[in-house]
Each structure stands twice: as structure tokens, then as C-alpha cells.
């Protein structure tokens, strides 16, 4: 950018710094504060390990994972739970969202139940799912799906409802059938909303799987975290939470990347905050 251009540039200073610089800067500041607080030993180092201990533990965990140790197995199990939970949430949420958004029956009869169900603390169902689907991965998949599919329903329905009224009138003037209008106009217009729902679902499905593991055992990363916390290996807990985050970020990234490729007509940053319904 030339001098003259920069005079015209209307963004704030943070826009002018490359994003990786601001991300790195903020991360380093955080580490600094952490290191300082842990070093002062306000709390016992067992309960709050510093960045050093945590990173060396992270290194051990990483080695275990890449040499195919027991943590690799747990990571693989949890990843599968998250993936299948997310997929089930995406599909069922989309279908229910279309039903709720498109039919009077859905709007008038089904939506009230969904709203009521959504208001319940969904975590409370975990023991039920364990009772129904056992201590294996199935109960976690169901839990992940159960927590993740509401935002997809709500956003899909909201997206369908937000279709531009002029465009609807235009389709009506072309004697478009209901199915044509849905396929050619409403669903494509709803895609940004649907993807917002899917991104939320990507994050929620990790929550669901881990909660399922905390409360229903199994062999996943959540169970390992629970055991480590019981033996006060907080550094190990932190290290494994990092890998939970990796699962979530990967899934989120895939969804966001798909959105960018599919919705080429709108600009969006991958790590953009988007409201969901």
C-alpha cells in the first residue's frame, strides 16, 4: 500500500496488521500471563501447571499419539464419535429444519416440541443414552448428535424463512412449483444460515461426545481426561484438551472450507463469528 493509499485506508490499525501477527502476539501475551501466574504459585503447581510443564506433557502425549499408543486409540475413538455424531446431527437437523421451515404442520405442530426440547438441559439425557445404547461409542454418538442438531434445525428453518420476498414473487410469476422454488431459490438462499448451523454443530458435537464420555465411560479421550484429573495430572488433562480442540477445529475448518467453496458469491473469513438462531 502506498502512502497516499494508506491515507485513504479507513480500517482501524488492527486491520493493517497481518492476521498471523495479531494471532501470534495475542497467543504469546496469554502464555506470558499464564507463565507469570503459575510461577507465582498462588495455587499449587499440581493444580495449575505452568506453560513449561504443560508443553512437555503435550510433547509426551503427542509422541504417544504418533507412535500409536493408548492415547492415539482414545483420540481415534473420540474422533469417530464426533464425526458420526456431527454427520447424524447435520443430516437429521437439515431434514427436520426443512420440514419445520416448509410445512404448516412442521411450523405449527413440530416446532413447539423442538423449542421445548431445546430448552431442556440436554446433558441430563446422557445417562439415558448410556442405558439405551450401552457404554460403547454408540451412546456418545447419540449424545453428540442430540446436542448438535438443534442449531442446524433452527438455522435451516430460519434460512428458509428469510428468502427474499421479491424473489419469491418472481418465482411465483414464473409459475414455479413448490419443489422448484425450494430447490432453485429457498435452499440455495438458506445455505449461509445452514452453514452457520453446521459450524455450531461442529463445535457442539465435540461437547456432546466428551460429555458422553465423562458420564458414560468408554475408551475415548474424555475418559482418559477424567482419569488424569482424578489422579491430579492436570498437565496431562491440558495436553489432551488441546487434542480435543484439534478435533473441533479440524471439523469446523472442513465445514468452513466447504462453505467458502460452495458459497463463492459471498465473502467470508474462515474464523468469522456468525450468529446462529
Amino acid at each position: 500500500m502506498s502512502e497516499a493509499e494508506s491515507l485513504w485506508y479507513s480500517g482501524t490499525w488492527i486491520d493493517r496488521v497481518p492476521q498471523w501477527v495479531s494471532i501470534t502476539f495475542f497467543g504469546l501475551s496469554f502464555l506470558g500471563v499464564w507463565w507469570f501466574v503459575a510461577g507465582m504459585e498462588f495455587v499449587s503447581p499440581v493444580l495449575l501447571p505452568g506453560p513449561g510443564e504443560t508443553f512437555s506433557e503435550l510433547w509426551d502425549v503427542t509422541q504417544n499419539i504418533f507412535s500409536g499408543g493408548h492415547i492415539a486409540e482414545a483420540l481415534w475413538i473420540t474422533s469417530q464419535e464426533v464425526f458420526w455424531g456431527f454427520l447424524a446431527a447435520a443430516v437429521s437437523g437439515f431434514v427436520l429444519g426443512v420440514v419445520v421451515g416448509e410445512t404448516r404442520l412442521g411450523q405449527r405442530a413440530i416446532m413447539p416440541y423442538l423449542v421445548a426440547l431445546n430448552a431442556l438441559p440436554k446433558v441430563a439425557f446422557a445417562p439415558v443414552f448410556v442405558a439405551w445404547f450401552g457404554f460403547g461409542v454408540n451412546s456418545k454418538i447419540v449424545m453428540a448428535m442430540f446436542i448438535a442438531f438443534f442449531p442446524v434445525i433452527v438455522d435451516t428453518a430460519a434460512g428458509l424463512a428469510s428468502t427474499d420476498s421479491d424473489a419469491l414473487m418472481l418465482f411465483e410469476s414464473m409459475e414455479s412449483s413448490r419443489w422448484q422454488t425450494l430447490r432453485q431459490l429457498k435452499l440455495p438462499s438458506a445455505l449461509p444460515f445452514i452453514f452457520a448451523g453446521l459450524k455450531t454443530a461442529a463445535v457442539f458435537s465435540v461437547v456432546g461426545a466428551v460429555v458422553g464420555e465423562y458420564l458414560g465411560g468408554g475408551k475415548g479421550l474424555g475418559e482418559l481426561i477424567r482419569l488424569s484429573a482424578q489422579t491430579l495430572r492436570i498437565d496431562r488433562v491440558f495436553a489432551m484438551i488441546v487434542y480435543l480442540g484439534v478435533i473441533g477445529i479440524l471439523l469446523f475448518g472442513v465445514v468452513a472450507w466447504t462453505e467458502r467453496k460452495l458459497l463463492f458469491w459471498q465473502e467470508s473469513e474462515i474464523f468469522e463469528i456468525q450468529g446462529t438462531g
Binding site: 427474499d164 421479491d166 424473489a167 414473487m169 418472481l170 410469476s173 432453485q184 431459490l185 440455495p188 458459497l263 463463492f264 458469491w265 459471498q266
Partner: peptide, 11 residues
């Protein structure tokens, strides 16, 4: 028929 907005489908 034509409206105030072009209402083109962006995709």
C-alpha cells in the same frame, strides 16, 4: 415483471 431490486440469483 420487474421490481426495484434486480433479484438475480447470486449462484
Amino acid at each position: 415483471i420487474m421490481f426495484q431490486q434486480p433479484t438475480l440469483l447470486p449462484w
